[in-house]
Design a protein around this nucleic acid. Structure first.
Length: 365
DNA sequence: AATCCGGGGTG
DNA sequence: CACCCAGGATT
């Protein structure tokens, strides 16, 4: 037995029902055989790892892969990303959601190039000072790019630890959070942290899944308290969710000489920097009067008709959109501010946000 | 501690 | 459709 093994045993957390070393060894052995090959796993380049981790926040691997490739095609290096206009970064992010991630990505790239010689810091607490990088993402970058012994606590790890330790609390509570981070820290080995980190993410994605986990294939089944107590299907505890309100909106296809008016949303807040049809929120049903009111004094309307409806759900409200085509008496439309007259045939390529993208099939009707 | 941020998948 | 999933910033 080596010195480090003796020391590990000596530091064993009294709350841990097993040796962290056994846990990580079983996990690493499984990973060698069953680990996934992903586009961002052939590298230790912190730029590539950082990009993948930001894209993977709140997002599945399947949804990310295409965006990751397109993004790197356009921004293959940190310096190129830093010198690009934010609008181009948003355009490549369109459809991926949580657009603050794209703004923070751009801000971090500029911060690193301007103040750190284009290099990522290696320490977790320094990584956490960068926009869009919290404790878990900082840990992932430190572990994957720099092979540091830093824990992560993403959704996969959170679910695994809730089960392995049979945590009898809501997993997002402050109290649970403290315990989970402590456990994550205790289980993260001093060596081979790069592989360990990818292994535990894969365990969550492939074996310890939210529904129907494959416990019979799990490398740490013998250590899992939820398994031995037959609680796997009850854990993690489900946080009660509140019901969300519904908002109504009118969106307008303002048509003038085969072009329509579109506008870019302000850079911050909901769907920041994405394009949309002009429109307004409504509380009651007076569509035609409201539309004429909305367009009053701007241009002459020749015809208004309803094209259809779309529903879209955000994290905290439902949106119902009524889509109207408004044909204008042809005139020389001048776009102002964030507006633009776009040929109708170009709408498909436009980085519209999800709710308005659902309206496009209605145009042909 | 609670709320704000999307979009995809399942049944 | 209803419901599930899931990091970081902000207030």
């Amino acid at each position: 037995m080596t010195d480090s093994e003796i020391k590990d045993e000596g530091n064993l957390e009294p709350t841990l029902p097993f040796s962290p070393r056994v846990f990580s060894e079983h996990l690493l052995e499984w990973y060698k055989l069953a680990g996934r090959e992903l586009p961002w796993r052939q590298t230790r380049d912190p730029y590539l790892i950082w990009l993948s981790e930001i894209m993977l926040q709140q997002t599945t691997v399947a949804a990310v892969i295409g965006y990751y490739r397109r993004f790197l095609m356009r921004f293959p290096r940190l310096t190129i990303l830093a010198s690009a206009p934010l609008e181009e970064v948003i355009d490549l992010w369109a459809g991926l959601g949580y657009y603050a991630r794209a703004r923070n990505l751009h801000a971090t790239a500029q911060e690193l190039v301007e103040n750190r010689g284009g290099e990522f810091p290696q320490a977790v607490d320094e990584l956490m000072m960068l926009p869009g990088i919290g404790r878990s993402t900082a840990g992932a970058i430190a572990a994957l790019a720099f092979d540091q012994s830093a824990p992560i606590l993403d959704g996969n790890v959170r679910r695994i630890l809730c089960r392995v330790f049979a945590l009898d609390e809501l997993p997002r509570s402050g109290s649970a959070d403290k315990k989970l981070w402590k456990w994550a820290e205790s289980l993260t080995p001093q060596h081979r942290t790069h592989d360990y980190t990818q292994a535990i993410m894969d365990l969550g994605a492939l074996i310890c899944t939210p529904k129907s986990p494959r416990c019979d294939q799990c490398p740490v089944e013998s250590l899992c308290l939820a398994r031995s107590r037959n609680l796997v299907d009850m854990l993690p505890m489900k946080t009660p969710r509140k019901k969300i309100p519904t908002r109504h909106q009118l969106a307008l296809l303002l048509v003038n000489r085969e072009r329509c008016l579109i506008q870019r949303r302000p850079p911050n807040g909901l769907l920041g920097g994405l394009w949309e049809f002009p429109g307004f929120e409504t509380t009651q049903e007076e569509p035609f009067a409201a539309i004429r009111q909305h367009c009053a004094g701007r241009r002459s309307i020749s015809e208004v008709r309803l094209l259809g409806h779309a529903r879209h759900t955000y994290s905290h409200f439902h949106l119902e959109v009524d889509f109207y085509r408004v044909d204008l008496v042809p005139y020389d439309g001048i776009a102002e501010g964030t507006e633009q007259w776009l040929p109708l045939v170009d709408l498909e390529q436009l980085p519209l946000h999800g709710a308005h993208k659902k309206l496009l099939p209605l145009i042909g009707a």
